[in-house]
Design a protein around this nucleic acid. Structure first.
Lengths: 333, 333
DNA sequence: CTGAAAGCGCTTACAG
DNA sequence: CTGAAAGCGCTTACAG
């Protein structure tokens, strides 16, 4: 094991003080150019590398940004992480990424660990069950800028970056209306999730704006995203709608398959629209019309505003809302 | 701005020395149980968190592990990252994740940055174009254990974790043969990628073992994964095969759709098998038979062996090969 | 069992 | 311009 070269080694060999070496290394202005040159030369020869940890300790600045997401392995979050990572490396920041696996306890543990690592900023998208802002506030109280994205909670006052789900849903339903649909059903998500509420509101408002009365029988909530969908689809089909706006692509695809099995043609008898623009939506038959959320951009923007807050020490606590894009495919033509 | 609680604060409030506080905190054995209890109680009350940076400096151990992947936003890699993250947090390690975006220069830049952060270990899956092991060796020369996974290169001597692609391909083709297929085509990937070679070899060996002669006209390589597929599919179909083994799921799905458009029934006329078990493979019509690669397990295992090397300072440079699983679905029934 | 002291590698007022 | 000194928050021999 070779011991790394330190400023002490340089100082000793040159017979000068470590303060001077330090100044030469970080290109201070109050130093004799010749001295500086000598130091730099030796540093190069010995392949001196400053110890990042020691620097962090004294400067109380690590350039590490902590990221907590519910899960890494999701198309949306991995896109967001991708955007964050690209910007971070460009700006010379380092990322520590944790996943909560949708568990509040692991989420809190991760945040605390990150804080203990002296992160300079925190980027977080909370788990489904996170209600309490306590641990995030702990971080803020330690003067760590926090930016929330996607899964935000109102209790935390900080800059937030989200996607305009409401508008996305509105556009999707408007599109169906313009195609001539009059009886548009909605398969929603868990009732109290903010995502579900916003998408449903977009649906309701689009109907209202086009003078279509909403019918409670056409609206079914799933208790979870995975389990209930087929049940919901069965119920909704019994009401013979001419279109279904689904909470996400997976649900929409299940709806398509169920409807086809029952002899309906898509989009002939029923038009179907999903949400997310999952890679899968482009390859199913028929290809699924869906609402694209700009995950990469969300990540990049969130990272950008966080870095701003870290460097300018400004905390405006703004809300950034990115727009969605309707991706029209065969399932609604 | 609240300054974080330090052991000094604890010591002052309890009127004992910082050495004692330190010992209580790290559960040393030469400490009075009562003293320890008091310290821990106060620590809990004040929400004391040890300063990682300070600990790292004195222990010369950061517990940070650097990870470099070609891209985060891929089903396979995000699964692997997920496995790594889960194990890392359990073992009290921290992850710094970078993506190379398949660019050798960014890959090298990331590795160097990670090394400057005093990472204790490096986990890497190289970009498509990485040929030279130089920068990885730089890390090894600084005594940083390196584990490669998935995209490995032979020039680096280190522990490696991969999936048995060969066997996966073999099993897929064997399955087709057992279904009675005699004329099995293969749409391969870029010719010189190790993935492509191994999967093709599995294909060839399965044919040979079952006394089916291979026919060069039934084997088409795509120059890239994205562009060439449709072209390849057209050519292959012209040879009227009774099955196609595709390099990945996306190609397989394109093949299914093209074949159906041409009036073939799947699996009636042609059986089709993909590779990866992408989430999409379960939802397309017909559902796609494919080879599942255990991404999460690869990540977890790679992290596990890396931590072993870090802690036990052993470097056996073993090769770990995880097995695939054939997921049989409608497209090959 | 406990405390005083040295030290991890670096930065930065403060004097000179 | 340069050096001595204090300090970042912690650990760990060493004495007692």
């Amino acid at each position: 094991m070779i011991k790394p070269v330190t400023i002490k080694d340089l100082a000793r060999q040159l017979n000068i003080s470590i303060s001077t070496v330090s100044r030469a290394l970080r290109n201070a202005n109050d130093i004799n150019p010749d001295t500086k040159e000598t130091v730099l030369k030796l540093a190069r020869e010995l392949e001196y590398e400053p110890n990042f940890i020691a620097q962090s300790l004294v400067k109380k600045q690590t350039r590490i940004i902590g990221v907590v997401v519910p899960l890494i392995n999701s198309n949306y979050f991995s896109e967001a992480l991708s955007g964050m990572t690209d910007l971070a490396i460009e700006q010379n920041y380092h990322l520590m990424i944790c996943q909560s696996n949708e568990r509040v306890d692991l989420e809190n543990k991760s945040i605390r660990k990150l804080v203990a690592c002296n992160i300079n900023g925190l980027l977080i998208s909370v788990s489904k069950d996170t209600k309490s802002p306590e641990v995030i506030r702990e971080a803020q109280n330690k003067n760590i800028p926090v930016v929330m994205f996607d899964r935000i909670i109102p209790e935390v006052s900080c800059t937030k970056v989200i996607v305009d789900e409401y508008e996305g849903a509105y556009k999707a339903v408007e599109h169906l209306i313009r195609k001539g649909c009059k009886k548009i059903a909605h398969i929603g998500g868990p009732r109290d999730l903010s995502v579900s509420k916003k998408r449903k509101q977009g649906y309701l408002d689009a109907l209202r704006d086009y003078k279509i009365e909403d019918d409670p029988k056409l609206i079914i909530h799933c208790k979870s995203f995975e389990e209930d969908a087929s049940n919901a689809i069965r119920k909704v089909l019994a009401e013979s709608p001419d279109a279904i706006f689904c909470i996400n692509d997976l649900t929409a695809i299940m709806a398509i398959q169920y409807a086809r099995k029952k002899g309906f043609s898509i989009p002939g008898d029923i038009r179907i629209v999903g949400f997310n623009n999952d890679p899968v939506s482009g390859v199913v038959q028929p290809a699924l019309t869906t609402v694209m959320q700009p995950g990469y951009e969300v990540g990049k923007l969130a990272m950008g505003v966080l870095i701003d807050e870290i460097e300018k020490k400004t905390a405006k606590h703004k809300l950034f809302t990115l727009r969605t894009r309707l991706v029209t495919r065969l399932s609604s033509r």
